[in-house]
Design a protein around this nucleic acid. Structure first.
Length: 808
RNA sequence: GCCGAUGUGGCGGAAUUGGCAGACGCACCGCACUCAAAAUGCGGCGAGAAAUCGUACCGGUUCGAGUCCGGUCAUCGGCACCA
């Protein structure tokens, strides 16, 4: 150890110095030696917005930086990459408003983000940096699309989109707030457009099954399962009277078939068109159809609780189990996109059917006993008994269900069926700033994929980035680019002018990181085999359903075609809580409660900032910001800094110190792994308080503390370690400290003495005592003797190291 | 409505998963240093004069409950006519 003249802690100088050293030495570059055990830590790559880094980014980044720095000290070869999810709307809107090319906007924003991230000292693998907007990157995004297309998983179809009637543009779902346009407040309606779709539904079951193999926090798994929405039931055919046609429905309650008193089909159902001539009130039905189609998103979701509908007159269906004639209705409470777009209505046991039946005076027949159907639908029927149900009468619901499915199958009028809520992924955007979709439309060959050698298909220059009046992407205005020849037949053809959504580039970036400059494949087999899957992925809860599901889908598809070596991309997924403003509300410009990381770092330095973000509260909970709290963390670093005045070369100061240090090593090591950063830091603060109380500490004590602190406050720990010459080499080259369990036990412990569960005294006892010995020891104690005097001790419960409870 | 969280001092939050509630920090108060202030160091800080009472509320299990069970309320997040 070296004695140095004391100088005040100067974070700005210390941080600059170490950032330069790390950069000069390529300290965090992973080794090419693939015989070492690997660790792949991942954070969600940021969208480089014009606002710069938010205080939320460093929370996730620091958390994973801590894990990665610890892993390196534990001997792992660590990949901790960073990149930019840079396509997307805000950049495009900024470009439109300011007439600057989105490419330039993107480059500026990335430069700013990069500077801020470097300022915070994250140990990123900068050599793996990628941007989704880089043609060498999106070349492979397009390549993956071609594979999906060839596998039949990409198709184009008519789909309704959100259309702002005043801006005359298509909007993403996120841009529709409470049914109106986020920007102008104009009415948003559904407009049918031809869209590229990806068949994620084909992977629904695999996406559910895969969840059993991964270590995601339970909340995330539950949300994914709910989003996919698997349900089991049956499809049943209802014959339409005198029509030679069968109307098929999906139901999760085939057991209630005897209670089906009418049918409802969605307004979009092609049955209406087909039986146009038989429907005696077609004008009325058609008017309803049109009205439903015009309904805005807002009306459909918020106001649609009040049921509307029209009966298809002149036409009847037949309930297959009892032969009764029942009416067919159309209503927009039945969705065209789920099941078969038609239902059998069982008003006695379904709230929606009940409300509909009551409104239109349709019969309600109870088929499960127990409720009062005069008042409301009886839906809690899992354990009920069947009534009014012919051959099912008297059976418990569960048995009835099995029996009816068997019956339907025997008669050939139905079968068991699994359905999912998950829908195919709308993959088109009528926008400029996205990856071009690499297909052409040929009049004789249809949609033809580009040859892979044509990739990347570059985004052409355009004069302005605004959508056309009819809602097409501005790419339609570039005839030189649009007009091309068909790769198949050579005749003139037109390029697709839709671009991909922002989700595309982020669905596979973790693969590219393993081998970011490969120009032959998405990544080399060797690199993927070594680095994949991602060992630990931390990100926000807001990405649980879309990003996480989409990227798992792409990965599973790539696995199926042999392009990646593992079926799941992420072994472990954790989520951080959001940082709120000081007033406890969500940070936003309009609320005026935004904290800028630059200001905080300028005042207290990156290390104290990182420390505070980890200390402020439980990592997975939302937490309000407190600048005073952050200053408290700076004070803690100053206290550690000043320990150098009291440090001695003596090996060990006391048994107490030795114990305290080992307790801290154990606590901090365990807590980092559980992402309980707040308690890990509290333990280090406690240790420092002990050092202050003793007024002295050994060089070894200080070294151990600094190693524990290093992952959170790396510049600080490097500086103090090197300045005081606490060991050979840099602190980041030291092995992670290991707790000496034998040093953990103290000779004496204070235990609580309870009488009938109430604490009456605290006494010191030898810590070596076992259960019975402790009980005996305590009863001999003078204080305790006085407490129990005159009473009979009936029972003594002793818990070594903690308490003794005397029952008397 | 459904699914999932959460509820502990003035504030952010801790509590070997049934064993001393309030660790650690913020704010506040006191003392020391100072001509003074700031900074720093040390001490105090749930309520109550005390016995005691206290972890959203009511009840239960247990020698013992913030933790387990039953019910109620509140807040936050996600989904929302998915048959």
């Amino acid at each position: 150890m070296k004695k140095v003249e004391f100088k005040a802690y100067n974070p700005a100088a210390v941080e600059k110095k170490w950032q330069e050293i790390w950069e000069r030495d390529n300290t965090f570059e992973p080794s090419k030696d693939h015989s070492k055990p690997k660790f792949y830590g991942l954070i969600e790559f940021p969208y480089p917005s014009g606002n710069g880094l938010h205080v939320g980014h460093p929370r996730s980044n620091t958390a994973m930086d801590i894990i990665c720095r610890k892993r390196r000290m534990e001997g792992y070869n660590v990949l901790f990459p960073i990149g930019w999810d840079a396509f997307g709307l805000p950049t495009e809107n900024f470009a439109i408003k300011n007439k600057i090319h989105p490419e330039i906007v993107t480059a500026n924003n990335i430069a700013r983000f990069k500077k801020q991230l470097k300022m915070l000292g994250f140990s990123f693998t900068w050599s793996s940096e990628v941007s989704t907007t880089d043609p060498e990157y999106y070349r492979w995004t397009q390549w993956i699309f071609l594979q999906l297309f060839k596998a039949g998983l990409a198709y184009k179809t008519e789909m309704p989109i959100n259309w702002c009637t005043s801006c005359k543009v298509g909007l993403a779902n996120e841009e529709v707030v409470n049914g109106v346009c986020e920007r102008c407040g104009g009415e948003v309606v559904r407009k049918v457009k031809s869209q590229w779709m990806l068949k994620i539904t084909e992977y629904a079951q695999k996406l559910i099954d895969g969840l059993d193999q991964v270590d995601f926090i339970e909340k995330v798994k539950v949300q994914q399962r709910n989003w996919i929405g698997r349900s089991t039931g049956a499809e049943v055919d209802f014959e339409v009277k005198d029509a030679g046609y069968k109307l098929r429905v999906y139901t999760t309650r085939p057991d209630t078939l005897f209670g089906a008193t009418y049918m409802v089909i969605s307004p979009e159902h092609d049955f209406i068109e087909k039986f146009k001539d038989r429907i005696t009130n077609f004008d009325e039905v058609d008017a309803y159809r049109e009205q439903a189609a015009r309904k805005s998103e807002f009306e459909r979701t918020e106001l649609a609780k009040d049921k509307t509908g029209v009966e298809l007159k002149g036409i009847k269906a037949i309930n297959p189990v009892n032969g009764k004639e029942i009416p067919i209705w159309t209503s927009d409470y039945v969705l065209s996109t789920y099941g078969t777009g038609a239902i059998m209505a069982v008003p006695a046991h379904d709230e929606r059917d009940y409300a509909f039946a009551r409104k239109f005076g349709l019969p309600v027949i109870e088929v499960v006993a127990g409720g009062d159907i005069e008042k409301e639908a009886y839906t809690d029927i899992e354990n009920g008994i069947m009534v009014n149900s012919g051959f099912l009468d008297g059976l418990p619901v569960k048995e009835a269900k099995a029996k009816i499915i068997e019956f339907l199958q025997e008669k050939g009028i139905g079968a068991g069926k699994v359905n999912f809520k998950l829908r195919d992924w709308v993959f088109s955007r009528q926008r400029y700033w996205g990856e071009p979709i690499p297909v052409v439309k040929c009049d004789c060959c249809g949609w033809v994929p580009l040859d892979e050698s044509e990739l990347p298909l570059l985004l052409p220059e355009v004069e302005n980035y605004v959508q056309t009046d009819s809602g097409e992407s501005p790419l339609v205005n570039v005839p030189d680019w649009v007009n091309t020849t068909c790769p198949k037949c050579g005749l003139p053809a037109k390029r697709e002018t839709d671009t991909m959504p922002q989700w595309a580039g982020s669905s596979w970036y973790f693969i590219r990181y393993t081998d970011p400059h490969n120009n032959k494949a998405i990544a080399s087999e060797e690199a993927m085999k070594y680095w994949l899957p991602v060992d630990w992925y931390n990100g926000g809860m807001e990405h649980t359903t879309l990003h996480l599901l989409y990227s798992r889908f792409w990965h599973k598809f790539l696995y199926d075609i042999g392009a990646v070596p593992c079926p799941e991309p992420y072994v472990k997924r954790t989520s951080h809580g959001m940082i709120l403003g000081e007033n406890g509300e969500k940070m936003s410009k309009s609320r005026g409660n935004v904290i800028n990381p630059d200001d905080i770092v300028a005042e207290i330095g990156a290390d104290a900032f990182r420390l505070y973000e980890m200390f402020m509260g439980a990592f997975d909970q939302p937490i309000p910001w407190s600048t005073d709290g952050a200053r408290g963390c700076y004070r803690f670093l100053e206290r550690v800094w000043k320990l150098q005045k009291n440090v001695t070369d003596e090996k060990a100061i006391s048994k107490k110190h030795e114990r305290a240090v080992n307790v801290a090593i154990k606590k901090v090591s365990e807590d980092y792994e559980k992402m309980k950063y707040n308690t890990a830091i509290a333990a280090m603060m406690g240790l420092v308080n002990e050092f202050y109380a003793a007024n002295t500490l050994s060089a070894g004590d200080l070294g151990a503390l600094l190693k524990l602190l290093y992952p959170v406050c790396p510049h600080f720990a490097e500086e103090m370690w090197t300045m005081l010459e606490l060991g050979e080499g840099y602190i980041h080259e030291q092995p992670w400290p290991v707790c000496d369990e034998s040093k953990l036990v103290a000779d004496e412990v204070e235990i609580a003495v309870q009488i009938l569960g109430k604490i009456k005294a605290r006494i010191n006892v030898p810590s070596s005592l076992g259960r019975d010995e402790l009980a005996a020891y305590v009863l001999e104690n003078e204080t305790v003797k006085q407490l129990v005097e005159g009473r009979t001790v009936r029972k003594v419960i002793a818990v070594p190291g903690s308490l003794v409870n005397i029952i008397c």
